[in-house]
Write a protein that binds this DNA or RNA. Structure first.
Lengths: 167, 167
DNA sequence: TTGACATAGTTAGGAGGCTAACTATAATGT
DNA sequence: ACATTATAGTTAGCCTCCTAACTATGTCAA
């Protein structure tokens, strides 16, 4: 996401603002710090998951299956919800099936389609990973009380509304 | 970064919290929304850069070179600051050199080392890209006044302190 | 009913990231 | 002085993502 590790100092931002009058230094600083913290969170999440032999892609598939009443879904629906292409989902499901965490069940009503089902092994995996993830996340966020969490959501939603202007 | 597009509803969070008592639902919601907004910002940034034929990696290299008084640096230093491996930096520099945006100059004092220099073409490229990027970013962040930007930085810094607990 | 189009999943090939190993050069310690 | 160790950059091979093309099946309208 944000690769850059060496965020600009106020001096550097000032130097760039001299050359480029379009620069809004506090906007730039907020933007970069937001991306920096979020990226470090994402890396930490991957590290936590990798201790259980998972990466984000496969983990989200398991969670999405567990969300369903029937613990089943289709590759297309999963791809859209996870946010990867259908081609990538094929690969994720190959890996999960090989690990015995999901199974492919051929559908009768539409023979193009396949139903993906969470196995008991997959559920057992989640029952180990999720408590660990939730415990760590609780600790990570304990510096923010409920008020601050609401504040954060509001600020983020203001930024979110601005995103179309960036594209 | 965060692939997941389908964030959990309060109902889903509640269902998971029933099964996993370790869950702190507002912590989870804040965490996921932060990652979601940051990821969308990053994607928007890539989109903006791609209009100029750049991606984040190469763009950061140009910016880091411009930050230097001498507009030169070394592959190792650039790799560390950009946040990629030295192997990846070799590839980024190959591409930038081929486009004429930087040059490799062999160092005399240490014959293992190479100095990377921003060319005038590279500077000209930045003089086109940076005003566009700054203008868009200003617009994107205009929903937050200075107070809110300070607030955001404080909240992010609290989360940042919690990251070690997540690893 | 059958030709055109749409949809589900997979496969093929490419981009960009990584680690590990390699080459060349420099620094260090006995 | 010379063997050892460290450092700079590159190369090779792997992973995960992507888009585009392909196969099979379903849908719809003339």
């Amino acid at each position: 996401m944000l690769q850059l590790r060496d965020l600009p100092t106020p001096e550097i931002l000032g130097k760039f603002a001299d050359r480029y009058p379009e620069a809004d230094v506090t906007a730039i600083a907020s933007f970069l710090y937001l991306l920096r913290v979020a990226t470090d969170l994402s890396i930490a999440l991957d590290t936590c998951l990798s201790k259980h032999g998972l990466l984000q892609g496969r983990w989200w598939v398991l969670i999405l299956l567990m969300r369903e009443e029937s613990v089943t879904s289709t590759p297309s629906a999963l791809a859209e919800k996870v946010g990867v292409s259908r081609a990538t989902m094929t690969g994720l499901l190959d890996g999960l099936e090989q690990s015995g965490l999901v199974t492919r069940v051929f559908a009768k009503e539409d023979r193009r389609s396949v139903r993906i089902q969470l196995t008991s092994t997959g559920q057992a995996k989640l029952d180990v990973v999720m408590p660990d993830y939730y415990r760590r996340l609780r600790q990570c966020m304990q510096g923010l009380d409920e008020d601050k969490r609401v504040q954060l959501q509001q600020l983020l939603s203001l930024i979110n509304m601005g995103i179309p202007a960036l594209i």
